[in-house]
Design a protein around this nucleic acid. Structure first.
Lengths: 195, 195
DNA sequence: GAATTTGCCTAAAGCTATTAGGCAGATGCA
DNA sequence: TGCATCTGCCTAATAGCTTTAGGCAAATTC
């Protein structure tokens, strides 16, 4: 029989493309086999199972995202860096909705620790060096930025901001302004007025 | 044969409980049938199909969340209201992870428009009346709050803030402080320095 | 060129989703 | 109370996805 040249890498890549086309949820071993015009069982020599395939796609997405983020941050600081990083996530999600969804896949701790996921946190920390935050505020800020980026992108893509006025681009720009302002004036915990 | 007394409502309720136990993704018509000790086909007289079941669970979750939110906002204003609303989402997600996941289900526009989803936006707007924002800034702020709440909760639950220091409760408190500060000093769009 | 390894195949079993049609218990009506 | 209807759960059957076991031929190795 003609050999198609399947490899885990090609399957992962094709799986990522499939995810962008039909949604990450719909990425199935069967669909992938069809795409290569090959019988389903043949894929099992290259990926352990369906879960393994999804995990590989997730890792691919995390890596691509981290690479883009590193690129975007290079030579930028302050608000410019903030906007650049934020736009990496938003643009990636728009260009590659399936991969972006894959990047949210819950990985087991060992896999997550070895993934490009850690680079994301590192880069956000790097970005924050342009602002005047010391631990533990820096970590708080890392988590805030992660929440806003992820939350906004996922709500926007899910249609949460129904195509109503004002334009979501405007909101995005204003949110980035607001975050910049906030990071430059990170508030102390308020003293309890009842204290 | 003994009649079990299936109804769409009981199936939805049981589906929600199942979701909290095994995850929304694992909510399946088959699993639900097992739970009622009934054959799978029997459920199809009560729910149209798997998608219909999931949608009903999502609507249930959205309603429960909106009810809790309304309760939390009653008699509160300003930062107190902000924290109360924020905690509704976070606590609900912790108590009912499956339902919270269900609430993120992408609904078709008609269903979404008729859902309790709209109440959520209204309540966030109500909350913002305690701050001095006029349109379109109010909408920007609604979207920001939605993003932070959803983003934080989903990252925290997904293990994104690995059980490392500082405590996620601390971060949460500081983020609410920060949002309060931000809303009380909502920044104007910066003038382009190149202008 | 023979031996071994590798890659895709056939076959088969198990689970989920969904539809069609049947039977008995519940309900409505005389 | 008895009959007719209707409703609710059932059996049966089709179809798709997942996964494992074992086979054969093409590619690789020597």
């Amino acid at each position: 029989m003609a050999r198609v040249g399947l490899t885990p890498e090609r399957l992962t890549q094709a799986g990522a493309e499939l995810a962008d086309e039909v949604g990450f949820e719909q990425v199935t071993v069967s669909a992938l086999a069809r795409r290569f015009d090959v019988k389903v069982a043949s894929l099992y020599s290259h990926v352990k199972n369906s879960q393994d395939l999804r995990t590989r796609i997730a890792l691919l997405a995390l890596t691509e995202l981290a690479d883009r983020a590193a690129d975007a941050l290079a030579g930028r600081a302050g608000k410019e860096a903030l906007a650049a990083l934020a736009n990496v996530y938003r643009d990636y999600a728009r260009e590659h909705p399936g991969r972006y969804a894959a990047a949210q896949l819950r990985l087991d701790p060992r896999t997550a620790a070895a993934s490009a996921g850690v680079r994301h946190a590192q880069m956000t920390r790097a970005l924050l060096r342009g602002y005047d935050l010391t631990e533990p505020d820096q970590t708080h800020a890392v988590r805030l930025l992660g929440s806003v980026f992820h939350g906004y992108v996922s709500l926007e893509m899910g249609g949460g901001f129904s195509h109503s006025a004002p334009d979501t681009d405007d909101t995005w720009a204003r949110i980035l302004d607001a975050l910049d302002t906030l990071l430059r004036n990170w508030p102390e915990p308020p003293t309890d007025p009842r204290g």
